[in-house]
Amino acid sequence: MSGYLCLDARNRYVLTGGAPLLVSRPHGGEAVRIDAETWAVRVGPGFIDHQAEEFGGEIADGLEFIGNPKLARAAAILRHRDNFRFDPADGTPLTYDEDGVVARGGATKLLFPRIDPAVIGIVELAGENQILLGRNVHHDFFSLIAGYVDPGESLEQAFAREVMEETGRRAEKIQYWGSQPWPPSGSLMIGFHATTTDIEATAPTDGELAEIIWAGPSDIAKLPLPSAGSIAHHMITDWLGRH
């Protein structure tokens, strides 16, 4: 894999022969280095559609890069470049190094791409073959409980808080499961497994979830779930595989 990878604002790119299309010269904005042989460039509206037609490829949805470290890195760094153009200390324009990753402003302090940690996880009802799922007010599928880490929190504290705020349940025996970068929002998703004895909510919720349910394997098979590339989908299917 060598050359220039083009992604639009929705992180769409072109696949040819089952691999991301790389071109011999950059298009659009400034190129950022992904590795020794690969650069990434943000392109304007319609460019990906034109590129797919020109090279006879297919357009890949932005979420499909999650399992590919190079593509995920490209999406994350380009997002950082899109959002951070000025030094937060003095407002001067940022100048990026030759790789297009690390920046320096008028305050001369090095600025690295921002990563926002978020927690997500399985909450299993103790002694039962059921997990807690919620449907966000803005979505039409059921997923796991998730949220961003607050300043001063440990990851475990953040997950326990999110479970309580969103579902009114107390999360116990919180254990690390795994992680996944989520470049569309600049996040790093950290997955956990926990248990609870609270069948019903023990406290008021924040209203973020329109519906909260306990679901077993037979229930989950009938529910709309998160996209296949997401850590939520991986965690749910992993739990199903063990039950």
Score class of each variant (00 low, 15 high):
Arg114His: 08
Ala76Asn: 11
Phe84Ser: 08
Ile190Asp: 01
Pro183Gln: 06
Ala158Gln: 01
Arg135Ile: 08
Phe159Pro: 10
Ile131Gly: 02
Phe142Met: 08
Pro93Lys: 05
His193Thr: 15
Val149Lys: 10
Ala103Cys: 13
Leu133Ser: 05
Gln180Thr: 07
Glu128Pro: 02
Thr197Asp: 15
Gly91Cys: 09
Leu111Met: 14
Thr92Ser: 15
Gly100Glu: 01
Ile199Met: 11
Thr195Asn: 05
Ala201Cys: 03
Glu156Gly: 13
Gln175Trp: 00
Pro183Gly: 01
Asp206Thr: 07
Leu209Ala: 04
Leu209Met: 13
Gly134Asp: 05
Tyr176Thr: 07
Gln175Val: 09
Val163Thr: 02
His139Gln: 13
Glu172Arg: 15
Lys109Gly: 11
Asp206Leu: 09
Gly207Leu: 12
Leu110Lys: 13
Asp97Ala: 14
Gly147Ser: 03
Thr95Cys: 06
Glu124Pro: 00
Val119Trp: 03
Glu98Cys: 05
Glu124Thr: 03
Trp177Lys: 10
Thr205Gln: 13
His80Asp: 06
Glu208Thr: 13
Trp177Gly: 08
Arg81Ser: 00
Val149Ile: 08
Glu166Ile: 04
Glu166Gln: 13
Ala194Cys: 05
Phe192Leu: 11
Leu110Val: 03
Asp82Asn: 04
Phe142Ser: 07
Arg104Ser: 12
Gly186Met: 04
Pro93Ala: 03
Trp182Glu: 15
Ser179Leu: 10
Ile77Asn: 08
Gly207Arg: 05
Glu200Phe: 09
Gly207Thr: 12
Leu132Cys: 14
Phe86Gly: 00
Asp90Cys: 14
Asn129Phe: 01
Lys173Phe: 01
Ala210Tyr: 00
Phe84Gln: 12
Leu188Thr: 06
Ile77Glu: 10
Thr95Phe: 09
Gly106Tyr: 04
Ile145Cys: 13
Glu211Asp: 15
Leu78Tyr: 02
Arg79Thr: 06
Ala203Arg: 15
Ile115His: 02
Leu78Ser: 05
Glu162Met: 02
Ile120Cys: 04
Phe142Ala: 03
Arg169Ile: 06
Leu132Glu: 05
Gln175Gly: 08
Thr196Ser: 14
Ala160Glu: 10
Glu124Ile: 00
Thr95Tyr: 03
Asp87Ala: 04
Ile122Lys: 02
Ser143Trp: 07
Leu78Pro: 03
Leu188Ala: 10
Phe141His: 15
Pro113His: 06
Gly186Val: 06
Tyr148Glu: 14
Gly152Thr: 00
Arg114Thr: 08
Ala171Val: 09
Gln157Ser: 12
Thr202Asp: 04
Ile190Arg: 04
Ile131Leu: 05
Ala75Met: 09
Ile120Leu: 12
Asp99Arg: 12
Ile190Met: 12
Trp182Leu: 12
Glu165Met: 13
Ser187Met: 11
Tyr148Leu: 15
Ile174Val: 11
Gly121Phe: 03
Leu155Trp: 01
Phe142Asn: 06
Glu162Arg: 14
Ala194Ser: 15
Ala76Pro: 04
Glu153Pro: 08
